[in-house]
């Protein structure tokens, strides 16, 4: 709980501000560090170097450029829906951050069904993408929107199934409790590392990361955007500020999904509790509220590095191959994972 002296409206204000920071700060960092710099290095160039030291203000310059651009809307587009679409996509990101815990007391909401909520709101962005594709009155956008809808629905399922393994092992759907279970747990009587689920749920982690990759429409699953086929997919007709919102949403969602994955599989904000002799979640020292977010951030960066590394290396699948991969490989694998986890849970 936050300090009691802060009135309720103050708490709400703090949470809103915190939410905006928690979404936009990772998004900006990801864009600069990975999209501008890492991609350039992987292609043996330096990336932006002019705006600020080592091009660190490039993103500010880009935002300035987008804000100046004309807001173009096709004449035949469904104007109201067309304007709504990017906001829906961004809203999904903000809703998602609400359940992510950053420290023992640093959270926005402490839901008992956090996992359930997270999986539900993450699919809201599908709606935004679909209506963006439909409202643009463009054939490429329509194809992109339909592809996105098919893809995101197909990959929602392995994601849910992959998380179920974690839920079975932790015995709770509360994300805070999952973090606690990982850091207080022990492996075969040894508690030096806690029990991060990436070790016991490695299959689940892999399926989850593949599903995240598809959910984020990053290569090799980027056929909704597919700039060489569909020009820019559902974003083709968007320009200026509206495109900027899509752009922010893309990378903010990458950050938030990485945060969720680090909570589910890497032990979230915590360090193994045995290091400091903490016994329960109330015993955790207060300074973890400051250190916790930093730990989360570094874990997130690691996972985003993985996502982006794959993105900059692989070519993309075809739409039907992607569906086949989801239904014939990922879903059976994650179902088997659930079964094995359940059996082991009962046995031990």
């Amino acid at each position: 709980m936050l300090a009691i002296t802060i009135p309720y409206w103050g708490q709400s204000l703090l949470r809103v501000l915190g939410g905006i920071v928690a979404v936009l700060l990772p998004a900006g960092t990801i864009v600069y560090l990975f999209l501008f710099k890492m991609m350039s290095f992987m292609q043996s160039r330096l990336g932006p170097m002019e705006a600020g030291p080592y091009g660190s203000l490039q993103l500010v310059a880009e935002v300035g450029k987008w804000l100046q651009k004309e807001d173009i809307m096709p004449e035949r587009a469904d104007h109201r829906i067309f304007k709504m679409a990017p906001l829906i996509v961004l809203t999904s990101t903000f809703l998602l951050i609400a359940v992510v815990p950053f420290g023992p007391d640093a959270w926005f909401t402490n839901f008992d069904v956090g996992v359930f909520y997270m999986l539900a709101v993450s699919s809201v962005s599908v709606l935004g993408i679909l209506i963006a594709g439909w409202a643009s009155a463009n054939k490429y956008s329509l194809l992109g929107g339909l592809r996105a809808a098919g893809q995101l629905i197909a990959y929602e399922l392995p994601m849910v199934l992959a998380v179920i393994g974690v839920v079975i092992q932790a015995g709770t759907m509360n994300l805070q409790q999952i973090v606690f279970a990982q850091n207080a747990g022990e492996m075969f009587g040894w508690n030096g590392l806690g029990n991060p689920y990436i070790l016991t749920q490695f299959v689940g982690f892999c399926v989850f990361m593949v599903a995240v990759q598809a959910e984020l429409t990053q290569a090799p699953f980027d056929m909704p955007i597919a700039e060489s086929e569909l020009v820019s997919g559902y974003m083709t007709e968007y320009s200026g500020f509206r495109f900027l919102i899509f752009f922010i949403a893309e990378f903010a969602t990458a950050g938030v999904f990485a945060l969720v994955a680090s909570v589910l599989f890497l032990g979230g904000w915590g360090v193994p509790f045995s290091w400091f002799g903490w016994k329960s979640i109330d015993g955790v020292a207060n300074w973890m509220n400051v250190v916790g977010p930093i730990i989360m951030f570094s874990k997130m960066m690691l996972l985003v590095f993985l996502i982006m590394w794959v993105r900059f290396t692989y070519p993309r699948f075809r739409e039907d191959q992607l569906q086949r991969f989801a239904w014939k490989v990922l879903i059976p694998v994650s179902l088997a994972n659930i079964m094995v986890t359940a059996i082991l849970k009962v046995v031990f």
């Binding site: 991609m39 992987m42 292609q43 290569a219 700039e227 060489s228 290396t313 070519p315 993309r316």
Partner: peptide, 16 residues
């Protein structure tokens, strides 16, 4: 070829 299939890195290596 890479760009047409969505891989962005090969084209830079090719240009290099």
């Amino acid at each position: 070829l890479g760009v047409q299939m969505g891989a962005i890195t090969p084209v830079f290596m090719a240009f290099r």
